[in-house]
Design a protein around this nucleic acid. Structure first.
Lengths: 255, 255
DNA sequence: CGTAATCTTGAGTCCAATCAACCAATGTGG
DNA sequence: CCACATTGGTTGATTGGACTCAAGATTACG
């Protein structure tokens, strides 16, 4: 399915026909990656911008000890390396989970598009800020939540994100990750992840089979992991003015 | 001391007199914050861009349980919220550690500056990418390193960063954080942090008193925490060419 | 069909959290 | 100036939960 990027960016701002057309050109050249292969490896400087079109991928780092830490998941509509223009080399690798399709975009096309379509540029900026928000929330996860909460929180997040690109119509979506992957994400061992998932199954919170996750009780899963999607910044922007009277929701003073 | 931002950005790219002058105007209006106060609180939308001029600050999130997770440290030259233009509200708070000085920049001035000084815009983009790199490395820390390594790694990082803005001439710099703060950063209890620091002192790795850290043995501290500053992207940019032959290190295939 | 990867389960160990004092330094108000 | 409270640091004893190790069941895949 194409157009995940459009779906995602439209969550932030309205795009017109020209914008959508421009984004469509991103997918002119698509390459297949086979399960487990790397899209980009640490230390290199990619000469193309990569857009994940189908399947899942992850950013990860390997330690000298052989341990691995996954630092982000990428789903259709996510860009791998918008920063090609700025950084000399990747400080992490990107690998796909299961087979995947990746669009290759020339840096020139990328720059031109952002130049001619300020709304797109703005929306892409928003997308990177959301990614940053996710990183911060993961730190909270690893630092201050227990294994059960961590995994629950991760599932909630991925559910919302998949929803945002139209890939989780029901409370059910493709989750092609192994328990070891989840462990490498949340700082746990495969054994612990296994036990956590079983507890969740027994509690009728989820089912997870053949890489398909179904969330049976969204409310309970979100509350038990104190999941609050605010950090995903999913609400549409208002007036782009810098001086807009901000009518936020109930804002409680810090105690 | 003024001009930390210039020092920092020049690490990435050469700035001319006009650039430096423009950055100087950022510090026209400076406000004092008293120890422990918040610069920005979660959920609000700041109407100014904040630049830390003196002292330390941190980004943090509070959980419903009262736990706190620090997700970033800010030192002189760091911007708090460049994204004011894009996001509706902060997904975290920023508080100062010890007394601090913060420059208030109008969004308009910020935009104008980036408009008229593309080098600055580019360098600011670089700075945010470095911040992102730090977030990823912290995830590695929390997920895959033990308490001793974590704290050591944090100290190495802060040493390099302080160095980069000229605030750690010797292997010694101001570190106005409590042991509880370090715990809230690295997902540890104050007690554990205390014991870790003592081990480091006994091993003649560091001294830490009155908020002044001295690293006695940089080599050992970096190696024991497998600290590699590559993720801070400290090397000057080369030609902005997209096609450079990349001589990477040993790359092993993913198992 | 056979091999490897993944998932599952149990038993034992260890490390960091927890709980609980205590000390030193700092600051505050009477 | 002193009694007192507060904060940050230090130390010890205990506990519990996640890791480790190991083996078996199941699934995926060439």
């Amino acid at each position: 399915m194409s157009g995940s990027l459009v779906t995602k960016l439209q969550r932030f701002t309205e795009l017109d026909k020209a914008d959508r057309g421009a984004l469509g050109r991103f997918e002119a050249e698509v390459r297949d990656f086979r399960a487990g292969s790397d899209v980009i490896t640490q230390g290199t400087q990619p000469d193309r911008v990569h857009l994940l079109v189908q399947g899942w991928a992850c950013r990860y780092k390997l330690l000298a000890t052989g341990k691995r830490q996954i630092v982000a998941y990428l789903i259709p509509g996510d860009l791998c390396d918008v920063h090609v223009f700025v950084l000399r080399r990747m400080d992490h690798s990107i690998g796909v989970l299961g087979p995947a399709k990746v669009a290759l975009i020339s840096p020139q096309l990328m720059l031109d598009t952002m130049d001619r379509h300020p709304r797109i540029a703005r929306a892409l900026w928003w997308a990177t800020l959301v990614d940053e928000g996710v990183l911060r929330e993961w730190l909270v996860n690893l630092g201050r939540r227990n294994p059960y909460e961590r995994v629950a929180h991760l599932l909630c997040e991925m559910w919302v994100r998949m929803n945002n690109v139209g890939l989780a119509p029901e409370d059910c979506f493709s989750l092609p990750v192994t328990q070891a992957d989840i462990g490498d994400t949340m700082g746990l061992t495969p054994v612990t992840v296994n036990r956590v998932l079983q507890r969740m199954r027994r509690a009728d919170l989820i089912t997870l089979e053949d890489g398909e996750l179904t969330i049976l009780d969204v409310n309970r899963l979100t509350s038990l992991s104190s999941f609050d999607s605010a950090y995903l910044h999913g609400e549409r922007e208002r007036a782009p003015a810098a001086t807009c009277s901000v009518a936020t929701r109930a804002e409680r003073p810090r105690s």
